[in-house]
């Protein structure tokens, strides 16, 4: 698409202005591939605002995605960005983080990627308190492959591989993250753009394994199939059903087709990160002979 068609219409007499998200995006790759009414782009807005507020040097932020619709986020961000394999964004990010501990590393991926094929990696990175911020856009379905059952699909919802309604119990992502040992666990929906931005900003400023679940509509595959209307209808539902409950017990926050959607910041605790633990432990074992790993090494 030529730049002409991307022209911004502004009030006459005012200088030309760019969308505030654009400096954080690879502008030549916009428009993106997401469907009309998909909430992923909304989460990206919040993320870019949070980056602007929390990070002074964007060269020191890397973003890693897996495969799927949300997996495409990395490719649109004007950061060092990696679009890896299905389910494996977290271990890639862990390697990157340990090799360059001065980087902030954000994993941005979907529910199927992070919790079905990648579930084991999520659990272990949280257990180790790997210093990663993991953002999961949960749309309850496999979007890129056409609307199959996800580990988060609510009971009763219809999916192409669960055509008569889902009889499996879905996974409660904050409960899992909490149990596995994450330092920070929060959930918002794309309705809660201001709260989400604040939480992303807060999480960017913290250390340890931080997990933020964002509920977002998939109008094409989840909503249409379940006769739930359009994206905007679903966001309206989020608004109506959401209850903000900071500090809620994560065992009480599971989701269904009906009922409350509990949102807020559920967990915020101090734990040494994997690298801090390693350095502290080896310092204790080896004393001054230990060479603490900071990973800061000037390029030859």
């Amino acid at each position: 698409m030529s730049t002409d068609t991307l022209d911004t219409l502004g009030p006459e007499g005012l200088p030309h202005m760019d969308n505030p998200s654009l400096p954080y995006l690879r502008g030549e790759r916009i428009p993106h591939i997401w469907c009309p009414g998909c909430g992923i782009g909304t989460t990206v807005n919040c993320f870019t605002r949070a980056l602007g507020e929390a990070v002074s040097d964007l060269d020191k932020v890397a973003i890693v995605s897996g495969i799927g619709c949300t997996g495409r986020v990395a490719g649109y961000m004007n950061l060092d960005s990696f679009h890896t394999t299905h389910g494996r964004a977290i271990p890639f990010a862990a390697g990157l983080k340990l090799a360059r501990p001065e980087m902030k590393v954000v994993v941005y991926s979907g529910d199927g990627d992070l919790f079905a094929i990648g579930g084991n990696h999520f659990v272990h990175a949280a257990r180790r308190n790997m210093d990663l911020m993991v953002v999961c856009v949960n749309n309850f379905t496999y979007g890129m492959t056409g609307g199959q059952l996800a580990p988060t699909t609510p009971e009763g919802a219809s999916q192409t591989t669960m055509p008569f309604g889902n009889f499996e119990k879905p996974m409660s992502l904050p409960f899992l993250a909490d149990a596995a040992g994450a330092s920070f666990v929060a959930r918002w929906t794309v309705f809660h753009v201001r709260q989400l931005t604040r939480t992303l900003r807060e999480a960017l400023g913290k250390q340890g394994f931080r997990f933020i679940e964002i509920l977002a509509p998939c109008p094409t595959l989840f909503l249409r199939r379940n006769r739930l209307g359009d994206g905007v209808d679903m966001v309206r539902v989020y608004k109506e059903r959401s209850k903000i409950r900071d500090g809620a017990d994560t065992k009480d926050v599971d989701l269904g087709m009906d009922g409350d959607i509990i949102v807020g910041k559920f967990v915020d605790r101090e734990r040494p990160t994997w690298l801090q633990s390693m350095n502290a432990h080896y310092q204790q074992v080896f004393g001054e002979r230990y060479r603490p790993w900071g990973g800061v090494r000037e390029q030859d």
Partner: peptide, 10 residues
């Protein structure tokens, strides 16, 4: 601008 998933308005 925060809501727009397509960076089309702010």
């Amino acid at each position: 601008g925060l809501y727009c998933p397509d960076f089309a308005i702010f």
